[in-house]
């Protein structure tokens, strides 16, 4: 009676033409991923790698520059810098990962729930978070860490992790808000979906890309923060190496042995650069709206 069956044929012809024009991630992205992977492997297997004990002091090699024996040279106590940089990454990586587990573990569900539920729950929680955000996080962290002694890696992770909760909350809440007002959320409700189903099936997949890229950038920020704390002497106690306290210790003998600063700084910078770059690329890659012309 109508020309209706004709549609499927034509729709087909026209639909095939619409490609999913996704930009490839690019070689630089994979180089960065490789570098991060290498760092993680190094941190995990530091004790089985063929490197020296980072605490072993060899007084016949003090402040020597890079050589075949000591690829990165040695420090003022004759310790191998390469070994210290690799062991040092353990602290940085654990702080980065641990703090973000706490930050996202608490901040992300709260942010999603607040944005989805709205109402009084959202108003109160958001205001509390804004009050927390108003504290200068770094000063609060310094203050707490200087009183909460003896310092340990665990305490540092907890303090930085808790300090990151309001930030994560804000980012996730904003991201959720922009999705939660879309018609497809109402449509899901109209079909009889439960709140839980909506949060897991409709909201989460749309927020995940933003969350992942923010997570990577968050890890980078936290690692930099640990470096700053170590520089102030507020991170793990020497002689345990971390990138931050290595730079701190090297500061005093900068003129005698610049290598001591260069290698841990380079490790720190490269690591952060790679994380930021990956986060940025991923955000672009998953942005559905950008795919459309």
């Amino acid at each position: 009676m109508s020309n209706f069956p004709q549609f499927s044929v034509l729709e087909e012809a026209i639909l095939v033409e619409k490609p999913e024009a996704k930009e490839p991630l690019g070689i630089l992205f994979w180089i960065c991923v490789g570098w991060i992977g290498l760092n993680i492997v190094g941190a995990l297997f530091a004790n089985v790698l063929p490197i020296e004990n980072p605490l072993f002091q060899n007084y016949s090699f003090i402040n020597s520059g890079p050589s075949l024996h000591h690829l990165f040279g040695t420090d003022d106590l004759g310790r191998d810098i390469l070994a210290r940089v690799i062991y040092g990454s353990r602290v940085s990586l654990s702080v980065g990962a641990g703090a973000m587990v706490i930050g996202f573990g608490v901040g992300a569900p709260l942010g999603m729930l607040a944005a989805y539920r709205r109402g009084r729950f959202d108003t109160i929680l958001t205001n509390v978070m804004y009050v927390l955000l108003a504290f200068p996080a770094i000063i609060a962290t310094i203050a707490i860490l200087s009183f909460w002694t003896p310092r340990s890696l665990f305490k540092i992770i907890v303090v930085i992790g808790v300090a990151s909760i309001p930030l994560v909350y804000r980012v996730i809440r904003t991201a959720t808000l922009s999705v939660a007002t879309k018609d497809f959320i109402i449509a899901a409700k109209v079909q009889g979906a439960t709140d839980r189903r909506i949060i897991f099936r409709e909201l989460t997949p749309n927020i995940a890309p933003i969350a992942i890229s923010f997570l990577l950038i968050g890890v980078a920020t936290v690692i930099a923060l640990e470096g700053a704390l170590a520089f102030l002497g507020l991170s793990v106690n020497p002689p345990t190496p971390s990138w931050g306290n290595m730079i701190n210790e090297a500061r005093t003998i900068l003129q005698v042995n610049p290598w001591l600063v260069i290698f841990p700084s380079a490790a720190l910078c490269l690591f952060l650069l790679c994380l930021n770059f990956i986060g940025d690329r991923l955000r672009h890659h998953f942005d559905v709206t950008e795919v459309k012309l």
């Binding site: 018609d183 497809f184 449509a187 899901a188 109209v190 079909q191 009889g192 409709e202």
Partner: peptide, 19 residues
């Protein structure tokens, strides 16, 4: 709600782009 249904104005935003 399943006995009544609703269709919305914005066709693109009424479907979850990631499903």
């Amino acid at each position: 709600r399943t006995r009544m249904q609703m269709i919305f104005q914005d066709p693109i935003s009424s479907l979850n782009p990631r499903r």
